Simulated scan of single mutants.
Amino acid sequence: MIKVTNATKRYNKKKEPALKDISFQIQAGEFVYLTGPSGSGKTTLLKLLYKEEQLTKGSVQVDNIKVEKISSPKLHLLRRKIGIVSQEDLFLPQCTAFQNVAFVLEVVQTNQQQIVEKTLNALQRVGMLDVKDTLTKDLSIGQQKKIAIARAIVNQPSILIADEPTANLDVKSAVEMMKIFLNINQSGTSVIIATHDSTMVNSIRNRVLELSKGRLIRDDYSGGYSLFSDPKDVYVW
């Protein structure tokens, strides 16, 4: 469960806040799109959930954790609940796909047998088991994004956050990506996707939180990319 209450984030006191008085709740197992134009505050909001950014005012709760109150030594307790797929996929360049995913488990001192089992399972779930021994730098952009997802879910988080996961993908790769996210969600994981992909949002309908100029202007359980409709964006794969 995620509960955001009157969340405000200000970077500069002389400028308008990046986010202002945002409030919503996401229940366990939900699939939610976060939409809005560039600069509307989508990435900032996501970063508040896993405390990469600090709240200026308000409250964020993830399960039983008050995010703004958690201390740095205990931050790992929050991060274990959340898998993160960032806009930019940063990999260990001289390591294979398997090694890049396994590294997440090695950091938290998982035993070797579990590392192997969990890593292979995560790669299988995203359809990348056949490239496990390939260096990530030799993979396509679409394949790299799938490895990033595998890395995000290998520790079996209850929440998966993805920031613009289809931004640089062709239509076929974007469809494959969405199938992966839907499969992950169907297994019980909450999925939150920040996206500009109006076609994806309009075609695969789920709850939409829409931001504009740092404010939440819509919380729509029936889906649809924006309050401002554009017929050319609507088609079904």
Results as ranks from 00 to 15, higher is better:
V234N: 10
R205M: 12
T8P: 07
G29K: 02
K3G: 12
R151C: 02
K66P: 06
I70D: 00
E52P: 07
G41P: 04
A97I: 09
R10F: 04
F91M: 01
L78Q: 08
Q124K: 14
V191W: 10
K14S: 07
I84R: 01
K9L: 13
V234S: 08
S140H: 09
K69G: 12
V62G: 04
T8Q: 01
D21M: 03
G214H: 12
I217Q: 02
N12I: 07
L160R: 06
F103D: 07
K51P: 13
K132D: 06
R215K: 15
L120H: 08
T5A: 09
P93M: 06
I147P: 01
E210D: 04
K213N: 15
I159H: 01
L46W: 05
K15Y: 10
Q144Y: 10
L55T: 11
R218Y: 11
N111K: 11
N206M: 02
I2V: 00
I147T: 02
S226N: 11
S23W: 07
T96C: 08
I82M: 10
R10N: 04
V175P: 07
I70V: 01
P93W: 11
G223A: 12
L90P: 05
I26T: 14
A28N: 06
S40R: 04
E30D: 05
N185M: 00
H196R: 03
M177Y: 12
K145A: 11
K13F: 11
M200K: 04
K42L: 00
E53K: 13
K57A: 15
Y225G: 13
S158A: 04
Q25T: 14
P17K: 02
R215W: 05
N202W: 08
T35F: 01
E164S: 09
S212R: 15
K42A: 03
Y50H: 05
N100L: 10
Y11D: 05
N168E: 13
K47W: 06
A167R: 14
K132Y: 12
L120C: 08
I82H: 05
I153M: 02
M1A: 00
S222W: 11
Q87W: 11
L77N: 05
S158R: 07
I147W: 11
I159R: 00
P231S: 06
I26N: 04
F181Y: 10
I65G: 02
